[in-house]
Each structure stands twice: as C-alpha cells, then as structure tokens.
Simulated scan of single mutants.
Amino acid sequence: MKSIKVLLLAGMLAVSGAVLAHGDEDHSTPSGPVKKEQKDWGIAGEAKAAKRTVAVRMTDNMRFTPDRIQVKQGETVRFSFKNDGKLMHEFVLGTKKELDEHAALMMKFPNMEHDEPYMAHVAPGKTGEIVWTFNRPGDFDFACLIAGHYEAGMVGKVKVVAASGARQGTAR
C-alpha cells in the first residue's frame, strides 16, 4: 500500500510539473524569478549583494573542491561551479537530514529533479552558479544528490559563523 502511495504521489508531481527529468539538461541558469523561501540554511540571495565568489569544482571522483567553506552570518555568496567531469553533477545546499531524505528519494526516482535556488545542476564541462544569503549561523551541508554520487562521498560542509563572533570568512 505504501509503495502505491509513493507511486501515486510521484505521478501527481510529474503531472503538476514539480518533478522534471534530470537527463543531460543543464539547469545551471535559473529560468525565471528566484523563489525566496527561508530555509534553515538561509535564503536565496540577490546577485548584486554578493561581495564574494566561491569557485567550486565538481569531478567524477565524486568530490567537490573545496569541500569546506566558511562564511559570516548575513553574508551573500556567489557560488560558481565548474563540472570538470564527464558525468552530470549537482550542488545542493541543506541540512544533513534534508539531504539524506532527498538522496533516498533520488535513489528511488533517479530521473527526478527539483529546480530550487539552493541547487545547481551542471552538465559535463559546463559551469553554473547560485547566489545564497546565509542569514542563520550553524553548520550546514552540501552534496551532489544524483543517484550514487552522495553515497560515494560527494559532500561538503558550510560553517556559518555567528555575526557577533564573525571573522573574515574564507573558503578552505
């Protein structure tokens, strides 16, 4: 019964347009207005507010470089992605719990994708970017949630230092 409900939900999402096929499409450039929704790890930022760019490389050895990033609370960061591999990769910001849940769903439905402002899908040899405002302190995660990539260790951490004790953030 539970699997029927999951399949029904997937079918409804597909019909509603909320689930799109991953395929080889490059979804690194937003196609419409950015959805500003507060998340535990921040909110979509305005490009003009970004004072720093963090360049992130994605590779087929299932790693991000850098895989540890530190920012100040309130900082808006432009993440610039370069996929140096031959496989599609993605960058998804979130909490460990949310990434775990999304990764499990991706294993069940490997062709699904969500187009959210905290994620970028980057085709082989291409580039992409997101702009994010880290308005809450804490330790957050990022990952490639394409089936098998997360499980292979394509993950990283973002440390958001509280504004009161913030020092100059650096990518490391």
Rank of each mutant, 00 (worst) to 15 (best):
K2Q: 00
K2P: 00
I4R: 00
I4W: 00
V6N: 01
V6R: 00
L9T: 01
A10T: 06
G11W: 01
A14T: 01
S16E: 07
A18L: 07
V19G: 03
A21R: 06
H22R: 05
E25K: 05
S28G: 08
P30Q: 05
P30F: 05
G32R: 07
V34N: 01
K35G: 05
K36P: 13
K36N: 13
E37M: 15
E37D: 15
Q38E: 15
Q38R: 14
D40V: 12
G42R: 08
I43D: 03
I43E: 04
A44Y: 07
E46I: 14
A50W: 01
A50L: 04
V54K: 12
R57W: 11
M58C: 08
M58F: 07
N61E: 10
M62P: 01
F64N: 11
K72L: 03
Q73H: 02
Q73Y: 04
G74R: 04
V77Y: 01
R78E: 03
F79L: 03
S80N: 03
K82A: 00
N83C: 00
D84W: 01
D84P: 00
K86T: 01
E90Y: 04
G94M: 10
T95M: 12
K96E: 13
K97V: 13
E98M: 11
L99A: 09
L99Q: 13
E101T: 14
A104M: 07
L105Y: 09
F109C: 06
F109Y: 14
P110N: 10
N111C: 01
M112A: 12
M112T: 14
M112S: 09
M112L: 13
E113P: 02
E113Q: 11
H114C: 02
D115E: 09
D115C: 07
E116M: 15
Y118A: 03
M119V: 12
M119F: 08
H121C: 02
H121P: 03
H121M: 04
P124S: 14
G125W: 04
K126R: 13
T127D: 11
T127S: 14
I130P: 06
I130C: 07
T133R: 14
N135Q: 07
P137N: 09
P137K: 12
G138N: 12
G138C: 12
D139I: 09
D139M: 08
D139R: 11
D141C: 09
F142V: 15
F142D: 15
C144M: 06
A147K: 15
G148D: 15
Y150K: 09
E151D: 08
G153T: 12
M154P: 13
G156S: 10
K157H: 11
V160E: 13
V161D: 14
A162S: 09
A163Y: 10
G165K: 14
G165P: 02
A166G: 09
R167T: 12
Q168T: 15
